[in-house]
Computed example of a mutant assay.
Amino acid sequence: MKTLTTIIFIIFLSFTAQAQNTTSEVKVETIEMSIVTETTNEVKTESTTEVARLYKFKNSRIKRDLNFITKANKPKMA
């Protein structure tokens, strides 16, 4: 009984999906753009200096977070 109602439901959905009105094709307006032949080179004289920090200690927070190890990676006694 359950399979019969499921098949009828699927057939009903397929008929309603086919009965939908299709929309007409929408025409898109195109824009013509010209090709630029002139190029200008800009040189930036400002330079920003970024600082990278190195941590001396083994247990520093950044290194510990980057060296992520889960408990599943640790060996277990059988």
Rank of each mutant, 00 (worst) to 15 (best):
T30P: 00
R61L: 13
L66F: 13
K63H: 06
A17H: 05
T49W: 00
I7H: 04
I10H: 03
T45Y: 03
E42S: 08
E50M: 07
L4S: 12
V28H: 09
V28C: 09
I62K: 05
K76D: 01
A19P: 00
I62L: 08
N73D: 15
F68W: 12
L66D: 13
A17N: 10
T37Y: 02
T16L: 12
F9C: 13
Y55E: 03
I31G: 00
S60R: 05
I62P: 00
Y55S: 01
N41I: 14
E50C: 00
S60W: 04
E50H: 03
A19S: 13
S14N: 11
I11Q: 04
P75N: 03
S60T: 04
A52N: 06
K74W: 08
T6W: 06
K76M: 10
N21M: 08
T45L: 05
Q20L: 15
T37K: 15
L13S: 07
V26Y: 05
K27I: 06
V51F: 02
D65T: 08
V28Q: 14
A72L: 11
K27V: 06
K76C: 03
T23K: 11
A72C: 10
K2Y: 08
T3V: 07
S34W: 02
T39M: 11
I7A: 15
T30N: 10
V36A: 13
K2C: 03
Q18D: 07
D65A: 15
T22Q: 10
L4R: 08
N41M: 08
I35G: 01
M77W: 06
F12N: 05
T3C: 10
L54Y: 12
S34C: 09
F9M: 13
F15M: 15
E42T: 06
S24F: 02
T49H: 09
N59I: 02
M33A: 08
K27G: 03
N67P: 00
Q18M: 07
L4K: 12
M77D: 06
T49M: 09
L13D: 01
M77N: 08
